[in-house]
């Protein structure tokens, strides 16, 4: 049968269990306290998760939006063939927006 995947599965599971059993669950209280105390004063946002995503770690979110933009453009370009890409309509659209 498929011996290699089962062997890999066993190795992965033992390694993962070993890693998880040593995991420190005492989440860092300093970072948590800093975010919770300064969320309302510094950013004005009552939702601490929202404050982290869009303010404290906004550059992370910017990179993630870049990945989303690149993926969407790639999907658009792969899904449309060259003949169906409608270059004429695209040129019309561009000339319209430029004339405005």
């Amino acid at each position: 049968m498929k011996l290699v995947p089962i062997f890999g599965l066993i190795i992965f599971t033992t390694l993962m269990l070993y890693a998880v059993s040593d995991l420190p669950i005492t989440h860092n209280p300093d970072v948590k306290q800093y975010y919770l105390q300064n969320a309302l004063e510094k950013t004005g946002s009552a939702n601490a998760v929202n404050a982290i995503v869009w303010d404290f770690r906004a550059y992370d979110t910017l990179g993630e939006e870049t990945v989303l933009f690149a993926a969407v453009i790639a999907v658009f370009l792969i899904a449309h063939k060259k003949s169906e890409f409608k270059l004429k309509t695209l040129k019309k659209h561009i000339s319209k927006t430029q004339s405005k």
Partner: peptide, 12 residues
């Protein structure tokens, strides 16, 4: 309150 940092990372 629970820790908000992992939630933000998972959202990303």
């Amino acid at each position: 309150m629970v820790d908000p940092l992992p939630q933000a990372l998972v959202l990303t």
